[in-house]
Design a protein around this nucleic acid. Structure first.
Lengths: 182, 182
DNA sequence: ACCTGAACACCGTTCAAGT
DNA sequence: ACCTGAACACCGTTCAAGT
């Protein structure tokens, strides 16, 4: 709570590294970015990174948290858009971090930390979507199943090649199923 | 076509390596398995693997092709099961190769070879499902969109933690949507 | 054609030492 | 507390040499 100067400095330096790592991870991918390169861009020795982050996965999670936070604050400003508009917005948002969606799924296999983050992220997203659907008149049980199916469909679109037309028809179908029972 | 002894020997040795690699990849994961370990289990020097496969991704694809071929031949013996039974069978089948589903998505980012394999795999799967749905009375357009959505939902179930109940309700929902328009 | 020993360039991470 | 130079163990892959 009561943070002294030292804590703030540490946080600042951490954020500085996170910004640099985010740019590299998004541009080149997580695997293609070495800790050495992050360090070089940050102007420190490679092992200095381990003073601020326990390992590369820890740095990944810090980057992810930053991205999620930024998206959430943007989302609250979206206000009264329709469900479909919000869905399209979400996909566009995730599209920017496509690479990291892959990376998270890949690292879930290897790293317990990433695994925990991943399940918590989906829990949060699921909760958000279910609330939104209930507010739009769906029954709780319907909302839960559609939130799950919807999330998987969005992730599928992100991680698989497809035409714009294919995307539109799947989204339209999902929206239609969502409201067919109201 | 006309294969001589030498070609057969080469194929045999390749298959031998593939079987060993498959066991290791499924048990420990692709990333966690080093080429050195595959070589050790195969009783050859590490660099010998590069005589039979151009690189580690090439070996991965050989393993994947073996798995897909085995599944397809099992599938044709499934005969007259209902759509839902076939869906449940497919999920159980993929569940066994869960790790490699992650791996393929991760490697798609890095390797053009894997990217090509991945898109061809989905093309084949999609075609199979669409045909099956049309044979069950769906219109072509409906079949296409449901094949896409269904594939994504199945992949989502594979790659995300969920309860048995959650799985059942999503599958039931998908089946219900599939036949609601017939 | 097939296989190997030795090396290469690189990786994430650790350790002892400095300030 | 913060940072570094040097090293460690490992990785996928290559190369020159042997049969």
């Amino acid at each position: 709570m009561a943070r002294n100067k030292r804590d703030i400095d540490r946080k600042d330096k951490q954020d500085e590294i996170i910004v640099i790592a985010r740019a590299l991870f998004l541009a080149q991918g997580y695997e293609a970015t070495s800790m050495a390169q992050v360090a070089r861009d940050a102007g420190v020795a490679p092992n200095t990174l381990y003073w601020y982050f326990t390992d590369k996965d820890d740095l990944l999670i810090a980057v992810l948290n930053g991205l999620v936070l930024a998206s959430l604050s943007e989302y609250t400003q979206l206000g009264s858009a329709s469900i479909k508009e919000q869905l399209v917005w979400l996909i566009a948002q995730l599209e920017q971090s496509k690479r990291l969606v892959f990376t998270v799924h890949a690292r879930v296999e290897q790293s317990q930390t990433v695994q925990l983050w991943h399940s918590q992220f989906h829990q949060m997203l699921d909760h958000l979507i279910v609330e939104k659907l209930i507010a739009n008149g769906l029954l709780k049980e319907q909302a839960i199943v559609i939130a799950t199916a919807g999330t998987f469909i969005v992730e599928g679109l992100l991680t698989h090649p497809h035409s714009a037309q294919q995307r539109d028809s799947v989204i339209d179908w999902l929206i239609a199923q969502t409201f067919s029972t109201v």
